[in-house]
Design a protein around this nucleic acid. Structure first.
Length: 271
DNA sequence: ATGGCTCCATACTGGAGA
């Protein structure tokens, strides 16, 4: 089972790229961020024609998250993080997909930092961490993925010194991310590829992609119950080089099939 | 410190992204 996350930077402007990516990479589940479209402008028909059922939480111009599945309709379990009923930003949606809980995150960017936008980012991060802890305590199989707008370590940035004044690399941002992972989550990309240069974002300026001047800030975190099933992780890097690409590339994990339960014999292989 | 590029809105320009 392949679960992917992709910050599309405008679902309608990006639709041809997204459909091509779904067709070529064929993820079972796709979490999208930065739809930048209200609910009524989500291209549900085109996505259904591509073989995916979807749930989404849109917003005019900014933010917006969606979960797509080609293995049956995602069953929505939450939209929006708990802890602030006045927060109207569309930045979190969650679904059950065949027994796996998948949370799709668009963590606020927070620039300029310091300032009120950065304060909002840190407050949002704090709410995420509080909620993520309840997921860990519940003990089930969970994937939390998306654009965290957090660059975990210096290894995850080309020329990290250029980013020290940016909200994605601020010490408080990295500390919040480290605190989240320390709850028991496995950062899939980094755990399976320790020491490697892995980027998921290259800005549109300065020919950044061609120079591989990127950042790693799109992440897939798996809960302890899923960690033994994690068998692969990667970045669909070539998508970033396609015509009219997002500034992010899709990122994915591959999970072994969930067993039907501790006492149930393994199902016989289907042809 | 700024700009480079690209998206969206309702547009001939500006805000946000990171």
């Amino acid at each position: 089972m392949r679960i992917a996350t992709y910050n599309v930077n405008g679902i309608n402007g990006r639709l041809p790229v997204v459909l091509r990516w779904l067709r070529e990479m064929n993820p079972d589940v796709a979490c999208l961020q930065e739809l930048r479209a209200p609910d009524e402008k989500f291209p549900a028909d085109a996505i259904r024609d591509a073989g995916y059922e979807a749930i989404w939480h849109g917003q005019k111009s900014w933010n917006g998250v969606a979960i797509l599945s080609r293995r049956g309709r995602p069953v929505e379990t939450r939209r929006g993080l708990p802890g602030d009923p006045d927060d109207l930003h569309s930045c979190y949606i969650e679904a059950d997909l065949g027994g796996v809980t998948v949370g799709c995150i668009y963590l606020p960017n927070g620039n300029p930092a310091p300032g009120p936008k950065f304060d909002y980012k840190l407050a949002w991060f704090k709410r995420l961490n509080a909620y993520a802890r309840t997921l860990i305590k519940r003990g089930g199989p969970v994937v939390l993925c998306g654009d965290f707008n957090a660059v975990p370590t210096e290894l995850d940035a080309y020329k990290p010194e250029r980013w020290v004044h940016d909200a994605v690399f601020f010490p408080q941002t990295r500390a919040a991310y480290a605190k989240l992972v320390a709850q028991g989550w496995t950062d899939a990309l980094r755990t399976l590829h320790p020491g490697e240069t892995i980027y998921t974002y290259w800005d549109y300026f300065r020919n950044a992609f061609a120079r591989n001047a990127g950042l790693r800030m799109d992440h897939l975190l798996v809960s302890p119950a899923l960690q033994p099933l994690l068998k692969g992780a990667g970045v669909d890097r070539e998508v970033r080089g396609w015509e009219k690409s997002s500034d992010h590339a899709p990122v994915w994990i591959e999970l072994k099939p969930l067993s039907g339960g501790p006492r149930r014999p393994r199902a016989r292989a289907r042809n």
